[in-house]
Design a protein around this nucleic acid. Structure first.
Lengths: 206, 206
DNA sequence: GATAATAGGGAATGGTTGTTTCCGAATAAA
DNA sequence: TTTATTCGGAAACAACCATTCCCTATTATC
């Protein structure tokens, strides 16, 4: 149950590889593989190739494949959260911040990244039913995002850009469905017109 | 490329097992397994147990695991389509038919079935990127559903229950995102209040 | 009733997987 | 230099996978 070491170079140690080596970089590469192939279809061999680490090195850094996945999941979630927050930050009021969040989701659901897929959605679909640990992580992520969106709605109501009668919690939950659905539809390569789609979605704030 | 035999008792044949045996029943059981475990995590052994067939029997009915999956997918899609259409049929006008469809989706995304998951969503997430055949089936299914929803919107506009200014195609695409997203959220065990969620979603038709 | 044909059952097969262990090479601190 | 440390990579392992093969049981036809 050792916590997965984020700092890779040991503090006391004097060892092996001087090359600036960052576990986060390796994890980013693991994220890509897990995103496009999912958990079960990704072999240790796939991981070592992607992460550019030898088998032994992977098992020295992580207890097993599952631990690699959890670390990759948390890294992915942190990255996406940061992207979403900074997209929101561009907006002048609650309504615009929310629009920016939705637009950001549409963009991330398209093209290369859209085809690669979202690790949260992938984990929910592939593992939630059989892996309680992953299920808890996924639920926590969705609830955080939902809370963030509900917060933006309330901000908008406070600054006057969103009507008071909008039900913040229900609307936020529906918007979570939209964002997760976007990632599913994006995987199916259906084209997504951000401007038009978001324009329709903003009617939920009327 | 032989088409998967739906009628199981051979026409000419005289063989083995007289017991009334229906491949569709076996496929329904395969659907359940594929839904909750996904493709890669489902072994032939899992399938034989679920379908109550011996290994050899499965391979006599289907070329390989992939063929079982495709047959299960089509059976699932046909069943869900029928359920959705019949939910819509209850409505008196376009608007009510659409509400019924959304309500039906929320209900199917909850409880046991919600936790089991949707095979279309699961296939999109797990296989679309690596399996062109499945990808095509998934896209076709999404497009059919989107077309159905767009049709309901236009029906509503014709019968006066939905305003003319609603953009049918864009709204339909967003609603597809909602329905697929519901299945993702349902897997994560978040509670879904059908009435309230659908009430919010119906604002898209304002 | 005898025969032929065939579905189902299930053991056997060959390949791959995740995991662990080993040791040599490389490196930085003592 | 010595020592401690860690990465690399091959090798080994048991478990499991999808698939094949053969046998049995059964029935339609003769």
């Amino acid at each position: 149950m050792q916590k997965t070491a984020r700092k890779y170079r040991s503090v006391v140690g004097p060892p092996g590889r001087p090359r600036e080596f960052d576990m986060d970089t390796a994890l980013d590469r693991a994220v890509r593989v897990f995103c496009e192939r999912g958990y079960h279809a990704t072999s240790i061999s796939d991981l070592t190739v992607a992460m550019r680490l030898a088998t032994g090195s992977v098992y020295k850094a992580f207890r097993d494949k599952h631990a690699v996945f959890l670390a990759a999941f948390e890294r992915y979630a942190a990255l996406r959260q940061e992207q979403t927050r900074s997209a929101a930050a561009q907006g002048a009021n609650g309504r615009e911040r929310l629009r920016n969040v939705l637009l950001s989701y549409v963009e991330h659901s398209q093209g290369t990244e859209g085809r690669r897929g979202c690790l949260v959605v992938g984990s929910a679909v592939e593992l939630s039913a059989v892996d309680p640990v992953v299920a808890a992580l996924v639920s926590a992520r969705l609830e955080t995002n939902e809370g963030f969106i509900a917060g933006l709605i309330r901000e908008g109501q406070a600054d006057g850009s969103i009507p008071r009668h909008v039900a913040a919690d229900d609307t936020a939950r529906l918007m979570i469905c939209i964002t997760q659905g976007l990632r599913v539809v994006g995987k199916a390569r259906l084209s997504l017109d951000g401007k038009r789609l978001v324009a329709v979605a903003m009617k939920l704030l009327a």
